[in-house]
Write a protein that binds this DNA or RNA. Structure first.
Lengths: 362, 362
DNA sequence: CTGCCACCTGATACCGGTACCACACCCACT
DNA sequence: AGTGGGTGTGGTACCGGTATCAGGTGGCAG
């Protein structure tokens, strides 16, 4: 097994092989300028003979275009972001663009480092699901833009920063889901995946403020929950909101706590997949049954949700479309067709299954 | 908002700013060669002042190294591959490498195109979950290697091709899972996610041959199933093997068919997540209950499987480790520490929960 | 037949780094 | 004082493309 790395042929070698000048070979292969049919033929034949393929790095060096877009997400292993990234690549591939994907695990420092890497590698644009909570921590994004790199935010918006973005209407989606629960007769509704604060605020306004110090998605979902409560004049109870670190275990703990309350929730609204599974564990652990003892609606539909017993009512996010739209918006920016900052809002869908029923007669 | 793309400063500008030669600035910033402390200081200060960052494209052009690894998977939106890719990037990042991820949707033509893109972009190595079934269709991989690009196969091996790979032992994992079912008393065990042939073979040997015309993972899993049957002297029944296109709907159809057989399966072995959910739908549709009427073991554990009613017994694949190991193996190749072709086999784990019980008394 | 122009081709500068090498300078030794 | 060697610095070729421009050739009009 010879490992003699045959250096890929260059345009000069093609030119030599074809017996023409370097420029002529370049013009033929690069598809620009004029070349007579005869020479074009000779060059093409020579290129095919020695297996020429243009060196994209060299091309980028001289054109300043890499045909690569940088994607920064929280975690590529999270099916939601996996879907978004797929949407992006599917939309980018036909245009000859590829995606360089970096995960940040919600750490701003990682995000800044990722943005630096992408700038250094001269990506033609970036699509970012940012962990930045406010303009002050979004310097890396502004810097990229200052260097002329188009940026599209996806999934999350940065409050106070006027940037192009592709998102869903979390507040409305959440409000409608909770309204659905209320319409079924529930008045004690738990909110799972709340603000990441150690101590539970006691006043409603504090929750809202705290929500502002949260990712825009989480904050908006909490707002939608509050909206729905207000719509029906239902009192807000801080005890029914999860607080603390956001993971499955913590969600389970919090739901267990809620279920043990003197006046426990009869329904749960979970704003993330891990919140749903955590809640399910707690419900099961308390010897209760979903759809009988406690109703449930969750975010992020999946094929699993449909085969649960009972099948779960879920809010479906258009992950692929989110990514595809972000890529399209980015290309508009790259092509210079930008007519001001725009925020694209995509539709969610409440998929009604069997986890929402009337509250048990008390 | 000024859009004047301030061209990023180059090394020449830093040199001018510092009042030194280009080479001296380059030596300082590139961290090679000698520079006196005074000048080094001046250069560093100048670089900081004008915000210099090395152009990775230019650097790649002259060094021939891109610090980018190409990753080709079937579908980045599939949680399994999402996990693998995360494992890869997590292992690559500390070494200053990033991942260019391409999805093929199991289409060989897409895979070939992807490999071309990666070669053109001069990635330093590739990690591929190939859709190639035999050496004849793996020309693109051989070609990459011939050009000196290290390649590591992940998840799947190409029978007959001696290449570095990181996989799990599908045959053994499958055999053990099915053995577990047999140990519980089952003798009629359905195999869901079988060969993609339109017509069901009638002879066992044909299944094996057909398995060879399948992805190595699927073929090995079928083999393991047959092994387990043989171990206990249980007769093979072609009717208990799914055939045809592999998706959730088709799995549901096939399981429904099996369940309607005169002598239906009392247990199901599903080799993929979609096979599990499809099977679940069919079981539910037939008015049967998992863990009571029919036992089930599936591949690819997830947080959902643990909260199903009943919790599902699943085979856990070390997705992250698969990716991480592949990246490590790739770096060994890149660093030239390769001592012959190696196949790394990672351990799976059978997570026993409650979906396996004794068959109902007949 | 000459002259001009259109047409085609090839030489070459450039992108921003890396890395080799020449050279200037300084010191020590004979 | 002359020479050798070491040291620090800057000049420059090169990577493989793109793109501009100069120049050669042939044809056609005057």
């Amino acid at each position: 097994m010879t490992n003699e790395r045959a250096a890929p042929p260059t345009i000069s070698e093609v030119a030599a092989e074809a017996g023409v000048g370097r420029a002529t070979a370049a013009r033929t292969l690069g598809g620009y300028g004029y070349v007579s049919p005869e020479l074009r033929e000779r060059v093409l034949a020579a290129a095919a003979r020695i297996g020429y393929r243009a060196n994209a790095v060299a091309r980028s060096m001289s054109t300043g275009v890499t045909h690569t877009i940088g994607v920064i997400v929280a975690d590529i292993a999270n099916p939601f972001f996996g879907g978004v990234v797929r949407g992006i690549s599917d939309a980018a591939r036909p245009r000859g663009f590829d995606a360089l994907v970096l995960s940040t695990y919600e750490k701003l420092s990682e995000e800044v480092a990722a943005a630096d890497v992408l700038m250094d590698k001269r990506v033609d644009g970036m699509i970012i699901a940012s962990a930045a909570l406010d303009p002050a921590s979004a310097d890396h994004i502004l810097q990229a833009r200052a260097r002329g790199i188009p940026v599209i935010l996806v999934d999350r918006v940065i409050p106070g920063l006027h940037l192009d973005a592709v998102v869903i209407d979390n507040r409305t989606a959440s409000r409608e889901a909770v309204a659905r629960l209320i319409a079924a007769g529930h008045r004690r509704i738990g909110f799972v995946w709340g603000p990441p604060v150690a101590e539970r605020p006691t006043r409603r306004r504090d929750f809202v403020d705290v929500g502002a110090g949260n990712l825009s998605t989480d904050g908006d979902r909490l707002q939608g929950y509050l909206d729905a409560l207000d719509d029906e004049g239902i009192a807000f109870d801080p005890e029914l909101v999860m607080v603390g670190f956001k993971n499955e275990e913590r969600a389970e703990e919090e739901v267990r706590r809620m279920l043990a309350l003197p006046d426990p929730p009869t329904a749960l609204f979970c704003t993330e997949t891990d919140a749903v599974t955590g809640a399910l564990r707690a419900i099961r652990g308390a010897g209760l049954r979903v759809g009988e003892d406690v109703s449930l609606i969750g975010f992020d539909d999946s094929s699993w949700a449909a085969v649960m017993e009972p099948p779960l009512t879920m809010i479906e996010q258009p992950m692929l479309a989110l990514g595809a739209r972000a890529a399209e918006a980015l290309f508009e920016l790259i092509d210079g067709e930008a007519d001001g900052v725009r925020v694209h809002t995509l539709e969610t869908r409440l998929i009604e299954r069997a986890s929402v029923t009337r509250p048990p007669a008390s």
